[in-house]
């Protein structure tokens, strides 16, 4: 089949289609070493130390969902992108694209959520911008946030730092956000305690990287594309293999049931308040305990390790005792009946 010549929804899925778009269009035009690392945020050397810089846009539908709303996501998401490089988030920008006719009350609720999330995480919104597009040219509210943070001396965290022997931790259960949003759609709705996990992770990150200098090698928040895609990106960037154990990966029972019903795999569902940490094996237990001592990491678990297998390969030990390859997400996950 010929190459797609229009933008498809899959290009925003966070999976292989997104990666192809980034390589074909963005990197080919804008290539530079910092951008090409494709990290959650860029870390730049300055006279005053190292600066982390990140940006993210939020187009979630519906705007309000169990466990959160677009405002919380916009603050948490960018804070987390900074935190995944070990940075202390310092400030945020807020860009709002509003659709003509959007009820003022909706906007008030969203901005109030942004205020709350910003206060709770201690990261202020210091600059902003608003644009309004004609009715039908947008979907009520789109948000962009950018963030700046500072990286302490001696902290060097990136996907390429993962080493053979590292232990892989996940800070909590998988798939909550993705399945919650998906089941808000008409026709796929179901009743039950499904809640987005949206949460800021910078405090958890500071706690674990403070335990032992250099023990945390890699951090990633498995948002779109899920744990499966994040692990593939890490394995590829570091040139290592990864093995995870299905039985050890925490999944809430409601998420598990919803996935069975819809034929979906929680490994590919988005998370908005979880991080993967690849850490030096001898400190793994201590780091796990530190994660679990905080509410945002209460359900943290050790889910696997980095091995010296073929570079870029992610293998899952199944509950049945078998093993299989885990690849990146291709396009947006859809419910299936097959």
């Amino acid at each position: 089949m010929k190459k797609l010549e229009t933008v498809q929804l899959d290009h925003g899925s966070g999976g292989l289609a997104s990666q192809e778009l980034i390589k074909d269009i963005f990197l080919s035009h804008l290539d530079n070493p910092v951008l090409a690392a494709l990290e959650d945020s860029a870390v730049l050397e300055t006279d005053r130390g190292r600066l982390a810089f990140s940006t993210d846009s939020y187009v979630v539908d519906p705007l309000f969902f169990p466990g959160g709303d677009i405002g919380l996501l916009a603050v948490h998401g960018t804070i987390n992108d900074l935190a995944m490089r070990g940075a202390r988030p310092f400030c945020l920008s807020l860009g709002m694209i509003l659709e003509e006719g959007c009820p003022m009350e909706v906007l008030r609720l969203i901005v109030d959520s942004i205020r709350k999330a910003s206060c709770e995480s201690g990261v202020p919104v210091v600059t902003g911008d608003t644009k309004v597009v004609p009715k039908g040219k947008g979907d009520k509210v789109f948000i962009n946030t950018s963030g700046i943070g500072f990286v302490d001396k001696g902290v060097d965290i990136s996907a390429s730092m993962a080493r053979v022997g590292d232990v892989i931790l996940l800070s909590g259960s998988m798939g909550d956000h993705g399945i919650t949003i998906l089941t808000q759609r008409a026709g796929i709705s179901m009743q039950g305690k499904l809640r987005s996990d949206t949460m800021a992770l910078h405090n958890l990150v500071q706690k674990i990287i403070g335990l032992k200098s250099g023990a945390v090698h890699t951090l990633r928040d498995p948002t779109r594309g899920g744990v499966a895609t994040s692990l593939n990106e890490i394995a590829e960037a570091a040139g290592v293999a990864i093995e995870i154990d299905e039985a050890e990966i925490p999944v809430h029972k409601e998420v598990d049931a919803a996935c069975e019903i819809l034929g979906m795999d929680p490994l590919y569902l988005a998370n908005e308040g979880k991080c993967l940490a690849l850490v030096q094996a001898e400190y793994a237990r201590e780091i796990l305990q530190a994660m679990r001592s905080l509410p945002e990491g209460a359900e943290a678990a050790i889910i696997g390790r980095v091995t010296d297998g073929p570079a870029g390969r992610v293998v899952l030990k199944t509950i049945a005792g078998g093993s299989r390859i885990v690849s990146s997400l291709t396009g947006e996950p859809l419910p299936r009946i097959c």
Partner: peptide, 15 residues
Amino acid sequence: AQAQAGGARVEVVYS
């Protein structure tokens, strides 16, 4: 998927 990008109305349903 391509038809949808071209303006077709395509809805994924469970039932």
